[in-house]
Nucleic acid binder design. Structure first.
Lengths: 250, 250
DNA sequence: CTAAATATGAACGAGTTTGCGTGATAGCGT
DNA sequence: ACGCTATCACGCAAACTCGTTCATATTTAG
């Protein structure tokens, strides 16, 4: 059995039981406890479960509906998020977009002495108990399905602050380098975020290059850095580079 | 079974029975009483239950982050919160202060078709999954120990909104009817809240009459209603009534 | 085919949890 | 107030778990 398959089995086991001990998992999957520990460590890094003494717990609450579809994509997104987190230096401030991409980035900011500003309620939950991170929450109307706040209050809050970095997710980047989104209500917010940050970083895995969306978020020249991966369409990457965007491969 | 799983079982047992003895829990879960005591101690520190001699009590609502209060006071505060919730009619908007008092009130707003505006992160958690309640979150710096947001961002948000009701907690009401607080940083916020609401309701159990605090939040004539209980000091109640405040006994 | 990279299992010291014994403390009836 | 009993906190030893290191097996690349 491949390691990937085994890790998927672990996730499935946790989903059904809620928790699992190292010894039990080792027996059920026919590998040593050491291997299970290594698997649990990796899965914990990816935020797919919570490691506890003696085993692991299923990550509570919001199931990610697409997480099952592609474990590979999850890993790629995680690599991108980790690489992006390395851009931030201690003492700097970071503005985090809504969405799972920003959540993954937040995961890699644990223990860092940084200031995190966000409208992402999942990020709030992730960093709430981390004493190292200074947390600033944007106000607004709570959108349950997206675990975020939106609306004019959020924009008003954004007018009051300025950060070193903004990390943006996207639904797709068009071949000409334009950043698109599929949910209209978020576009004014993303625009306001771009205005509120010094350096704008776009996080996009290979499947977003090229990609489409109904609404234009910004032109390529408004971006400072794009963090993506090898798999991303070379022509789009070229377009971005021409617009003066630094393309970082994770 | 993992320690975490066992502790979840304890919580579940308390939720169904309301209380549980150390000996009973030890037998049911198949561990020694010493282990149960250690579990109860940890859960008590997390505020997930109330430790009492011989066992533990369930806290009302769910995760109550800062539960240092006795079971008796909890019951009184709950009565006050329930009575206060009855003041609100469907379709109205409610501004909720930080603290456990407001959290209890939020608990009684479950299923009501109201709009709740708050800087209280515990309230956010409480009402996050309630589709009936429209939730608006105020922005600001996250204060972990108080589970709230504060700062100029919060005040700025408050300038943008107006609600039908404000429900205020307090550290004490002086004999002359002045509302006091012990944490200076919250005072400007409470003032801003008072400006942002039509009707101001103070929630105060008997132990707050009379009470003291470093900073003055407001004069009695800025209050519309005070919800309290029989045990409250009669002279203070008289002073409030003279200032035109309606005193409601829960 | 060889060499490098990766995955696995075993072993070991360090750290964590558990159960039990002891003396101290709280609740309760008289 | 007094004593009885149940409960508690603390310390200790045993069992368990963890991360690391190292050797071996398997896969990948050249």
């Amino acid at each position: 059995m491949l390691p990937q398959q085994r890790q998927e089995q672990i996730i499935r086991a946790l989903r059904s039981d809620g928790a699992g001990g190292v010894k039990v998992l080792a027996e059920r999957l026919g590998v040593s406890e050491a291997t299970i520990r290594r698997d649990l460590e990796q899965l914990h890094e990816q935020g797919r479960l919570t490691r506890v003494y003696g085993g692991a717990l299923a990550v509570d609450g919001h199931d990610e509906p697409f997480a099952e579809v592609s474990a590979v994509q999850a890993e790629e997104k995680d690599r991108i998020a980790r690489r992006a987190a390395e851009l931030v230096e201690d003492g700097q401030s970071v503005l985090l977009d809504i969405g799972t991409t920003a959540l993954r980035l937040a995961h890699h900011l644990h223990g860092r002495r940084v200031t995190v500003v966000t409208s992402n309620l999942a990020v709030l939950e992730e960093l709430q108990n981390d004493d190292a991170v200074e947390l600033v929450l944007l106000g607004g109307f709570v959108r349950r399905s997206y675990r975020s706040v939106v609306g004019y209050l959020t924009e008003e809050c954004l007018r009051q602050i300025h950060t070193d970095w903004l990390f943006l997710g996207t639904s797709g980047v068009r071949p000409d380098g334009r950043v698109m989104d599929s949910t209209l209500i978020e576009v004014p917010l993303k625009r306001a975020m771009i205005r509120a940050a010094d350096k704008v970083v776009l996080l996009a895995d290979g499947t977003k290059f090229p990609g489409h969306g109904i609404a234009k978020v910004c032109e390529p020249d408004e971006l400072s850095i794009v963090v993506t991966e090898q798999a991303a369409d070379p022509r789009t990457r070229e377009q971005l580079a021409e617009a003066g965007v630094e393309v970082v491969l994770a």
